[in-house]
Simulated scan of single mutants.
Amino acid sequence: MPVGEQGVRISLSAVVIALRDRQACVLTTESEDGATALPFGPFAPARDRTFELALRAFVTAQTGFHLGFVEQLYTFGDAGRDSPRATPGPDHRREISIGYLALTADATAAPAADARWTPVLDFFPWEDRRQGCPAAADTLIAGLRAWAGDDARRLARSERLFALTPAHRWNEGRVLERYELLYEAGLVAEAARDQERPAPPLAPGRAMVSDHRRILATGLGRLRSKLKYRPVLFDLMPPLFTLSGLQTAAEAIAGLTLHKQNFRRGVERTGLVEATGRLSTGTGGRPAELFRVSSAEAQGGEAMGLPLPAQR
């Protein structure tokens, strides 16, 4: 069948993020071949009234989890990649995948047998800068320099995205751009899979089925960017929390270590939280004051993000 006539199939993928054990985690399932996957399924125009209703239905069917608020991320359908892969069968239709982001404070164990909460940074270990530049980045940097060679544009792009020189600052929101650079350089397992060659030695991070690690990178980058201009972090928090717990959550998402005093001062200046007058004794140390989202914010007040003052 000519390429222009092969048709398409639409699939939907969900990036569902929660906080568990001081880590940002994503809800994952297993594909038929046992590979790690996001919850995903096809959109059937004759059956499904909207994309979102279809998404909610199959996420619950696959994982037992009921989605709350979701937002659309992006539409993925690049040719020349296994992902989104063509559908099986004689028609071999091109697959277009629409990604969604969902946040939840309900991170109880997923009830479905093959569903689990997996740490997000297991897929992107180079994105965790809480203890400085991670060891996983050393292999990648060497690989990027070898790939760039004498190509000034490749080298400049690598230096900018991975902050390889003092002139460049690490931008935590560029998760997808970094993953795409590593894919282009052949340094992640998916690139080798799509080009039908052996996986690179010591390829960092857990691989995912189809284009799911790319979709997850898009979701994490979107969430990190939104921290600065929308109070999305509270969608991941319990009703009552300490400022220390809020900072830990922000660090887990951003992959950065934040300056404690500056973070607290910044949070208090926003007016997004209010003290409850109660103390928590579950911190393992001195009792800490419990806070909640301020009544103005809970009633839909002017939205703003939280400060992310990184340690120097």
Rank of each mutant, 00 (worst) to 15 (best):
L67V: 03
R85D: 12
D138E: 14
W126C: 00
R178I: 05
R178P: 11
G132S: 06
F162S: 02
T165W: 02
A137F: 01
G77C: 06
F69D: 15
G173H: 10
E180A: 13
D150E: 15
D150A: 14
N171Y: 09
G149N: 11
Q195F: 00
V120Y: 09
I98N: 03
A102R: 07
L164I: 01
I141H: 08
T165Y: 05
G68R: 09
S83Q: 09
L155Y: 00
A191P: 12
H66V: 13
P198Q: 02
D138Q: 11
R93T: 05
A107E: 06
P90F: 05
R193I: 11
T104F: 07
G89A: 02
A156I: 00
I141G: 05
R153Y: 03
A61E: 14
L176M: 10
E190N: 04
D78E: 13
G68T: 06
D128I: 05
R157A: 13
A199V: 15
R197E: 05
E95P: 01
A136W: 02
Q72E: 12
D151I: 03
H168T: 06
G89W: 06
D114Y: 03
R130Y: 06
R81L: 12
R174A: 13
G77S: 10
A105R: 11
A61H: 10
A185D: 14
A110L: 06
Q195T: 03
D138M: 04
A112H: 03
F123Q: 09
G99T: 08
A136N: 03
V175G: 02
T108H: 09
L181V: 04
R130V: 06
F162Q: 01
F69P: 09
Q195L: 02
R93A: 12
A146E: 12
D78M: 07
T87W: 05
